[in-house]
């Protein structure tokens, strides 16, 4: 796939919960190797947008094309598409009935029919990458939040996805753990992973994002490079939002 071709292309995406319009016509393109950060106030629809990208939420209207598959179409094999899209959640959601190693190898063993030995080796190298090589046999409950989130990233990476979605991956963590997780994400970005990240970590956005998108009330109000958005915000709502989070 060429560098410039869109990895994700969203057209006029609409999502309603009953009468409540949460996404009101979103247009978005994410190119290969691009890191896009989504910011916006609470309740603006950031999570909903991210979750429609792998169809954890059913879109009400519009089209979402990932890797050339229109996932809004009912006959698309969503499970196949999801294998290519890693997702990291705010609350990690590691499988509580499995060890760290089993969390990482479950999907490759079940879906890619990898040999156990190969899957285990891969899991070890992923754990090494996130700095937890000693935790392969550990129980999930014995890990700190920051460790769990890094395992969750390793678990998503085990399927060798070419897109990673992050929904506020650090906002449930104690402050001293945030750095470790962000470091792993920066590493990933450097390796050329295509990433869509919902976060309030402006430092991370400034350093890593190719593009920042400001979502408010179910719409994209402004988008551009970090310099443009943080240095010269145009929309009054964005100015207001930045004021609030920078003056906490």
């Amino acid at each position: 796939m060429s560098e410039t071709k869109a990895k994700i292309k969203v057209d006029n995406l609409v999502k309603n919960y009953g009468d409540n319009a949460v996404l009101k016509g979103i247009n978005l393109e994410v190119k290969n190797n691009e890191v896009v950060v989504i910011i916006g106030p609470s309740g603006s629809g950031k999570s909903t947008l991210l979750r429609t990208l792998n169809k954890l939420e059913e879109p009400t209207g519009g089209s979402i094309v990932v890797d050339g598959y229109d996932i809004a179409k009912p006959d698309t094999d969503i499970n196949k598409v999801r294998e290519n899209i890693g997702m990291v959640f705010q609350h990690f959601n590691l499988f509580n009935n499995l060890t760290v190693g089993e969390n990482i190898t479950l999907a490759p063993l079940e879906l890619k029919k990898e040999a156990p030995k190969q899957a285990t080796e891969h899991a070890h190298s992923l754990l090494q990458m996130v700095g937890l090589e000693s935790k392969f046999d550990a129980r999930v409950q014995s890990l700190s939040g920051g460790q769990q989130q890094r395992v969750a990233i390793a678990r998503a990476l085990a399927m060798k996805p070419d897109v990673m979605l992050f929904d506020e991956p650090t906002s449930a963590l104690d402050p001293e753990m945030v750095g470790d997780v962000l470091a792993v994400m920066k590493d990933l970005a450097k390796q050329g992973m295509t990433m869509v990240v919902v976060t309030h970590e402006m430092g991370f956005a400034k350093e890593v994002a190719d593009r920042v998108i400001f979502v408010d009330d179910g719409q994209i109000l402004e988008e551009g490079t970090p310099d443009e958005l943080f240095g010269h915000p145009k929309h009054p709502r964005l100015q207001d939002f930045l004021n609030k989070i920078l003056n906490v």
């Binding site: 792998n54 954890l56 499970n79 196949k80 598409v81 999801r82 294998e83 290519n84 899209i85 890693g86 997702m87 959640f89 959601n93 590691l94 499988f95 479950l106 999907a107 079940e110 879906l111 969750a152 678990r155 998503a156 399927m159």
Partner: peptide, 9 residues
């Protein structure tokens, strides 16, 4: 959600 997002049916 975590299981489904990995592609597990």
């Amino acid at each position: 959600e975590a299981a489904r997002s990995l592609g597990l049916p």
